[in-house]
Amino acid sequence: MNDFFSERKKRLHDFKVKFLKKTAVKKQTDIPDGLFLKCEECQKPIYEKELEAQLHVCPNCGFHFRINAKKRIAMLADDDTFVEVNEHLESTNPLGMPFYEEKLNSAKKFTNQNDAFISGSCTIGDYPCFLGVLDSFFMMGSMGSVVGEKVTRLIELAIKEHKPLVIVSASGGARMQEGILSLMQMAKTAGALKKLEQEKLLYISVMTYPTTGGVAASFATLGDINIAEKSALIGFAGSRVIKQTIKEELPAHFQSAEFQKEHGLIDLVVERKQLKSQISALLKLHQGGHKA
């Protein structure tokens, strides 16, 4: 009798395990992958199509997700006006760093572009300008020799054509695989911007999440008007590195866009949905209302 009940109990257990496994598989396949995303800030689930409709801004807490350079250009430039320049430039491996070429090839395939900076001419609100955008999805938007060269060439084009310049930054800083050659781009881009200033041309710098390292220490913070997109993280080094270096407690959120505005580094903090109209208004003011 005991054997009978033991066998029956075992069969019941096996049935439950088998049934639960099938149910779990069915529940997992009911919701396709990628249909919902979790917000990095509030951790709440977001319907992917709703996130796209909101320009990749969380509808719950307002956190601004990272977006790639092509989406950024589509949001800022007027329809069918962006004409890319210097798209053929590609990074090499000047210092012979191990695995650097593999990382470059992987980034090219992932983003379908040659490097981390896309630049060209366009109109924004019908006002002509030159526009450059760093892509944080290409090796974290790091600045190597090619990025520095493309930024410099864009500045020189703005000088030649006597048009305003807009650069949107999203970067982890200088590209360590290129060592000193990468750091030299800081001085190179800053020197080109000095020439732009001498020509009395407008430079609008837009800092997004994240703008750090050598990019933050060079062209990103040298704008005539420095704008930070809401949710932007702005700084040179990470908070842990700074804390270990200066041996002091740091203010809360000291690398946030709002903190930087309060302390004078940033002129405006703007939500993504208002960014194009804000830049357009500044271009209008600079050009005296004269459109293309």
Score class of each variant (00 low, 15 high):
Ile159Ser: 10
Gln185Lys: 04
Met186Thr: 00
Glu178Ser: 04
Ala174Tyr: 06
Val133Ser: 02
Val147Gly: 08
Ser142Arg: 09
Lys195Gly: 03
Leu134Val: 02
Ile242Ser: 02
Ala216Met: 03
Met207Gly: 08
Ser239Gly: 07
Gln198Met: 14
Gly179Leu: 10
Met176Leu: 12
Val168Ile: 15
Ala174Phe: 01
Met176Pro: 13
Lys247Cys: 09
Ser171Glu: 02
Glu197Cys: 05
Ile180His: 09
Leu222Gly: 10
Ile159His: 14
Asp126Asn: 03
Ala217Asp: 13
Thr152Val: 00
Val146Met: 02
Leu134Ser: 07
Phe219Trp: 06
Lys200Leu: 08
Gly148Thr: 13
Gly235Met: 05
Arg175Lys: 08
Ile225Arg: 15
Ser182Gly: 03
Gly144Asn: 04
Lys188Asn: 07
Leu196Ser: 05
Gly172Glu: 08
Leu201Lys: 11
Thr152Gln: 06
Ala170Val: 08
Met140Gln: 03
Ala237Val: 13
Leu193Tyr: 05
Gly223Tyr: 11
Ile234Arg: 12
Asp135Cys: 12
Gly235His: 05
Gly173Cys: 07
Phe138Met: 11
Lys200Gly: 05
Val241Gly: 03
Thr221Arg: 11
Leu134Thr: 01
Phe138Gln: 10
Phe138Val: 11
Thr152Asp: 04
Lys200Met: 12
Cys129Met: 11
Leu196Glu: 03
Phe137Gly: 07
Ser239Gln: 10
Ile155Val: 15
Arg175Glu: 09
Gly214Ala: 05
Tyr203His: 08
Leu181Gly: 07
Leu154Met: 12
Ile204Gly: 06
Leu202Arg: 14
